[in-house]
Amino acid sequence: MSPEVAVTSWAVWSGAGVSVNEAPVPGSGRGLAPWPDRPAPILPARGRPVPPSASALVQLVQAILSTRRARVVPPPPTTVDLKLGTRTGSREIDLAFLQSLAERGDAFGSPSLFAYTLSTAAGGEVSLALGLRGALSTVSSGEVSGLAALVTGAASVSSGRSEACLCGAMEVSGSDSDVIALFLLEPAQPYLHAPRLVGWKLSFDPETVTDSRDSPRSTMERLAVTLAHGESAEIGASCPGGHAALLTVVPAAGTTVRPGRSARVGRG
């Protein structure tokens, strides 16, 4: 059991592009940008249609795990949980299934499409394709869902309930705020030269008026910037629904602490 949690690898995929263990690619664009010009991860063939959002999640998880294996010895724990924060859930596939019912009739919905009308279906595809055998769930708490997934993931790793947890935000609805951002959390150990989470908190207060300018994407990007630059910061966010989340990030042990930038958004 380690009270601190190491972030041993991370990746952010947005309309601007993909970054792995780096600051996110700046820019904008609707949906997720094409996978960049590098060797594409090899996905096991399943012989059935898989929605693009699920394939994207598998690609990103594979990139994170392979990068982690290449960077750090020993290898990551064998049981990795997957916890996705999502506000939009399976909205796009829900709408597609509704459309198919409207076009084909109530009795002729597509069973393969219906199977993906769950917010955990994309995560299930990761289990199928990459063999992850840990726990799988989504966490929803408005605009702070991604941070909430990180808070609950960090708590599970810190207490020893999880050997490792891939957690973050997954919002894919074809908009310019789309993002998949995942962070691999493991118990902090001396041999893991990695930035750490040393504090985390969730709260709820519907009576507090909050600044909702920050999207799940911008919050995840601020966290990735903080990690990439080796900074110490509090990453917080809140939303009009009343949810608030806060993560405290410090650089890898032995790293000279750089001046923390203001990464807090909303009231934190």
Partner: peptide, 11 residues
Amino acid sequence: ARGPSFATSAA
């Protein structure tokens, strides 16, 4: 409730 509040989904 003013503590942690969130939904979980896992089929």
